[in-house]
Design a protein around this nucleic acid. Structure first.
Lengths: 340, 340
DNA sequence: CTGAAAGCGCTTACAG
DNA sequence: CTGAAAGCGCTTACAG
């Protein structure tokens, strides 16, 4: 059913019905009530395309994901939070899949030119990220999940990645560890750079020299944690502690530790960053896992709100947040073993 | 830039430009080439809303997800496959988040009434699933991921869940196991019913009585596998083998086995269904995990194709597939321990 | 092979 | 407080 038919059933003009449905003030209360009730009864909803043409708003937020690795647990948790908040406004998430960085760029152009979304969320900014300038040029409103280097007129939400790894590393140093390995994301990603800085700062503050052999980079997967940890354990001068970038890499690291005949939380301490996945809890591991915690789902929900504010006309510069990260000490971190 | 401006720059009518861009035959080749080149140069793309109004096609496939549990690893893998195929046609995925079954129903109504999507994928059908009849009533084209009980004029793609668990259970029975536990999905979900049938059929064929205490149901999470497995291990007459519904529950089960001082692949055999997550591989576990394997990402890609066929006018009845599931034997399943 | 114009279903400035 | 009508940007039947 379209507006024309709906309005004629009510014996009202399209104008009045449209205004009542959009909540404009100049409609008599009794008329409005009647219209609202009828809309529910007949299940009338404005056609999104027509609405999009007439108003420029299409009720969708875009996110572009690389098919290879970005459909992982972090993204789906993030989207869960994003969608949960947007759904209250009947705004949906439009997911575009791409296979390369070039295709990602082309997709932002497509989304902007065809006006498919009202705004996008840009995730995982990296060094010299061309996407920021592109979105600005396209005049496609956006909020960044993460913290780009670039200055500019846009909003973002990031967690304190420096602080997270700084705290984690310091915690291990305080326990007497000096050989501390670090499972980080790919270099070039801003969050990984911040974490690297946090790691190095903590070591430096304790006068512990940085050993490049103790750092590894990769996607946050079980496999990456497993392989890198195996590498560390093969070193002449093994680490006695590890900082893992996510629960996924921690799982792999834990297994590598076990296979090597070592005990996590005794021979080797392990601390991980926990994005709070509902299906895998640090409390549930053996030993329970010390973590730095920050809910990526909550971040998604907050970014949804920032996007809504942005579309309401809020100044992008006012939409910037750094979330602190909480250190949760459990059983997997313990005093460094005494050298024999 | 809109059609009007774009066409005027080319000194052609909107009609001709539109036809060239849509690939209609009645445009001179040289004219078409010129238009196509200019479109790339200026970055012209038809406005999706206008296109939607004029043609009824909006270039989006809908999927409705429950915020609670459905933003998990299975869904994101599935969507990766779906998006990868759709992207070639410049079709995006519209994700709507809901918090309840009622909200899910309301959302299909909203999507249909406002014409936000060209079709939807319906996932995880359950017994007496009202969604099938609803979508038919709404005339919203759809493909089911899974196999509904309901008869009707719609397409679906399912894996052979019966066969998967039947094979897995028989494999364990062949190894001499008689006490075989089963970590299944929630009862009522069709896939879980099929798996239950496969489990029972295999036991029955071997003359092994069904013990309800050896079955557990829940979401496929690490935690579910852990808790249920702990329960099984507390039984007087412990199982010597377990069939786990996913890699996630297998991880939890493995940990419970280890904590109980048992060795997987020796004291207790474990086989899991593997949806082929890129970030957690059965080869990588200790012991390597026997599995029944079927790529959920491939299923997503295939369903994308079925949706495209459907929108091209294919008969829904012609779009039905059951995918066989491959048994992969690794180290986690071994002969039942000899009773002392 | 090309174009003028109606129509898709809304919103909203303008008039009353 | 209500309505007639223009306009958003396309496609496509019709005419040539």
């Amino acid at each position: 059913m379209n507006l024309k038919e709906f309005a004629s059933r009510l014996e009202l003009s399209q104008t009045t019905v449209s205004r009542a449905l959009s909540g404009y003030p100049e409609v008599k209360q009794s008329t409005r009530d009647r219209i609202l009730r009828a809309a529910v009864e007949y299940g009338y909803r404005p056609n999104t395309s027509a609405l999009g043409l007439a108003t420029g708003r299409v009720g969708a937020i875009g996110i572009v994901l690389k098919g290879g690795g970005e459909f992982g647990p972090h993204t789906s948790e993030f989207m869960g939070g994003l969608g949960n908040r947007l759904q209250k406004e009947e705004i949906d998430i439009l997911v575009s899949t791409v296979e390369s960085t070039e295709a990602e760029i082309a997709t932002y152009r497509r989304l902007a030119a065809s006006k498919r979304v009202d705004a996008v969320v840009l995730h995982s900014p990296y060094l010299d990220d061309p996407r920021i300038a592109l979105l600005a040029e396209l005049r496609l409103p956006f909020i960044v999940h993460g913290r780009p280097q670039a200055e500019g007129n846009f909003g973002w939400l990031d967690i304190d990645n420096f602080g997270a790894v700084h705290q984690a590393t310091r915690h291990l140093l305080d326990l007497g560890h000096r050989r501390i390995a670090f499972l980080n994301g790919y270099r070039g990603r801003i969050f990984a750079e911040h974490r690297q800085d946090g790691y190095q700062a903590a070591l430096c503050e304790h006068g512990v020299p940085l050993d490049p052999a103790l750092s590894g980079n990769g996607e946050f997967t079980d496999e990456m944690g497993f392989r890198l940890m195996q590498g560390f354990l093969r070193l002449e001068d093994r680490p006695t502690a590890v900082v893992a970038g996510s629960m996924m890499s921690a799982l792999g690291a834990l297994r590598a530790i076990r296979i090597a005949g070592q005990k996590a939380g005794e021979d080797i301490s392990l601390i991980a960053h926990d994005d709070v996945f509902p299906y895998i809890s640090p409390e549930n591991l053996v030993p329970t896992l010390s973590t730095t915690r920050s809910s990526i789902r909550a971040a998604g929900a907050r970014i949804a709100e920032m996007l809504l504010d942005l579309l309401q006309g809020a100044a992008p510069e006012s939409l910037r947040e750094v979330w602190p990260v909480e250190l949760v000490i459990r059983r997997s971190t313990a005093a460094a073993p005494v050298k024999d």
